[in-house]
Structures are given as C-alpha cells and as structure tokens.
C-alpha cells in the first residue's frame, strides 16, 4: 500500500487564503486532485490531495503557511450506487472511526476513492489488510 499523503493548511477566517494557495500551485505546476475544508467558528483547515505533495508542502512552508503533511487512507470504491456504502460498511465493521473524509474521483469518473483520516492509521491499515479493498497508488496520478 502506497503512503498517500495529504496537505493540511491552517486558515484564519479571512478571505484570500485559497487564492494564495492556488496561485503557488499554479506557479509550481501542482495539480489538486481532491480537497475538503473543515471550519469552526473563527478558523479552519483546508485539506488537499495533490499530485506532488512534497513539493506542495515545501512551497507552502516557504511562503509562510502553517502547513503539515499527513497520511490518509485512500480506499477505492465503485463509482456507482452502493460504492460508498460498501467501504463505509467495512470500516464500521472493523471499528474504524472516520475523523474526516472526502472523495477523489480519478480518470474522469473511471475510479473513485474515499480519502479517510483516522486516529491510528497503522492500526487501521492492519485491520483493513484482509479485506478485499484496493487502495490508491501514486501511479494513478500520472
């Protein structure tokens, strides 16, 4: 299983944050594959799945962003009714709690992935190893 890393960016409740991030990505030729925004009263966190995560992390850091890289589970699901249910069912059966999740649809609706953040990723991987699941690899980005 490839380690799939996501970028998390701290964001105050102020306009212009996403604009600045995307301007840097544009300059560096970094492609956003999927994203999610979690926010609470006053501040939020922008989560991004990108094709060049190390470069994105480095460039955002250089530009003064408060940013971190962390691993997510990227579980393939059928891009058809019941696809998400199947994956969610397995996770719940294994007692894996979803902290945060969003979806990446690759290759123009060819394949879909559920990006899942969990507390203990190593344990979750172990629990899911026996399941008949396939995971995202970096090959998909090409």
């Amino acid at each position: 299983m490839d380690k799939v890393m996501q970028i998390s960016v701290f964001s105050e409740n102020k306009p212009g944050k996403i604009e600045k991030i995307t301007r840097i990505f544009d300059q560096e030729g970094i492609n956003i594959l999927a994203s999610s925004i979690t926010s609470t009263n006053g501040f939020g966190i922008i989560k991004l799945l990108v094709d060049k995560c190390e470069l994105a992390h480095e460039k955002l850091k250089q530009n003064g962003f408060t940013v971190t890289l962390n691993e997510v589970l990227a579980i393939e699901m059928k891009d058809s009714p019941g696809g998400l249910y199947e994956v969610a069912h397995i996770l719940s059966q294994r007692g894996i709690n979803i902290e945060n999740a969003y979806v990446y649809v690759a290759k123009a609706r060819g394949r879909a992935f559920l990006l899942v953040e969990v507390k203990d990723i190593e344990k979750a991987k172990e629990l899911l190893a026996k399941e008949n699941l396939s995971f995202l690899t970096y090959e998909e980005f090409k």
């Binding site: 996501q6 998390s8 701290f10 979690t38 926010s39 609470t40 501040f43 939020g44 966190i45 989560k47 408060t66 940013v67 971190t68 962390n70 902290e99």
Partner: peptide
C-alpha cells in the same frame, strides 16, 4: 507553526 498537525480538534 511546528505544533500544527492538521487536526482541527487539537486547535
């Protein structure tokens, strides 16, 4: 900055 781990709950 160094303590930021992307987890909104921690913040």
């Amino acid at each position: 900055r160094d303590l930021f781990d992307g987890n909104i709950e921690h913040l």
